[in-house]
């Protein structure tokens, strides 16, 4: 049934030249037609699902954000009307939205550097040892694979004011531990520390890979020139690590901008909305049935992610 391949594509074609040789020929040889048919056959199942459940909703969400769609319109879609920029103006005039935006910004601005510093310290430490490296890497990485919900449940109890082990440990050294999650000033920092604990493993593995690409000759040359341990790190390792650091900052930033499970489980956004995030706000308005409004807020979050990523690229890109 299948036409035998042309000899030009046969084993006598030099390695790697196959693609370019095929491209150079005019369209429409039997082989090309067969390839195109097969390619679409392989692509169509994915593309149908992708169009319906990913690409479609991305555009639908943008459209919805300019309408007054509510949950009650699910059965009567004709009642939905265009609302122009109403959702967006309403969003930016809502003091609660400004509050959750600030909370989210704090989470990112404090959380990303904290996670990166801890991860870098762990990676540098691991890079300096030989025995037990795999074991330590495993230990630091473990929280990454666990469910945020489960971890948040555990941390809620760890942070309990009088029955929690954290305050008990503080008590041993004579510190009267506060009510971490019940305080408007400490709840958000507590969530940030927990997020850093859970996520530093990912960055550590990435940084460790980056550290192993730093040429030893350069470090040795710097040592010969009299550079100390810190100077070698600061002026040789760190600049070479820039692309890896950028990469780590970008993925952590994107993740932290969307934080949701931690406050959902640990604080329900409280006390006094001090831990409510933008994602939590969107979820709330979805729950209230304000679909168009929630879609608008989700696009603001999307834009924030794009802006943050662009900023990080400007800030951390390798100097040329």
């Amino acid at each position: 049934m299948p036409a035998v391949a042309t000899t030009r594509d046969g084993p006598d074609a030099p390695g790697g030249a196959g693609m370019s040789a095929r491209r150079g020929r005019p369209r429409g040889t039997p082989l090309q037609r067969r390839q195109a048919r097969t390619a679409w056959l392989l692509a169509v199942p994915f593309l149908l699902l992708f169009a319906a459940f990913t690409a479609g909703p991305v555009f639908a969400s943008l459209f919805m954000s300019f309408t007054d769609m509510r949950s009650t319109d699910l059965r009567t879609p004709l009642n939905v009307e265009l609302a122009g920029l109403d959702n967006y103006t309403q969003l930016f005039s809502d003091p609660l939205f400004r509050k959750v935006a600030v909370n989210t910004a704090i989470f990112v601005v404090v959380g990303v550097p904290l996670t990166m510093v801890l991860a870098l310290a762990a990676a540098v430490g691991l890079n300096g040892i030989q025995r037990l490296r795999g074991f330590f890497r495993l230990g630091y990485y473990l929280p990454v694979v666990t469910s945020i919900v489960a971890v948040a449940v555990v941390w809620r109890f760890l942070l309990q004011p009088d029955t929690g082990p954290i305050n008990q440990l503080l008590g041993v050294v004579g510190i009267d531990g506060p009510d971490w999650l019940g305080s408007t000033s400490l709840a958000l920092p507590s969530l940030i520390v927990m997020a850093a604990w859970r996520n530093l493993g990912t960055l550590m593995v990435i940084f460790l890979a980056g550290l192993q690409t730093v040429p030893r000759e350069m470090l040795e040359a710097a040592e010969v020139d009299g550079a100390g341990r810190w100077q070698r790190f600061r002026y040789v390792t760190l600049p070479l690590l820039r692309p890896t650091l950028l990469f780590g900052a970008v993925i952590t930033g994107i993740g932290y901008l969307q934080f949701f499970e931690e406050p959902y489980v640990m604080t329900r956004g409280g006390p006094l909305n001090s831990t409510r995030s933008v994602s939590f706000y969107i979820y709330d308005h979805f729950g209230f049935g304000n679909y168009g409004y929630a879609a608008a807020a989700s696009y603001v979050l999307f834009v924030a992610i794009v802006v943050l990523t662009a900023l990080q690229f400007r800030l951390l890109r390798p100097k040329t």
Binding site: V58, I254, L257, Q258, I282, L301, I305, V306
Partner: peptide, 11 residues
Amino acid sequence: MVPGMVTFVPL
């Protein structure tokens, strides 16, 4: 790069 929240409501 699209956050999950964006597709969540239309989905």
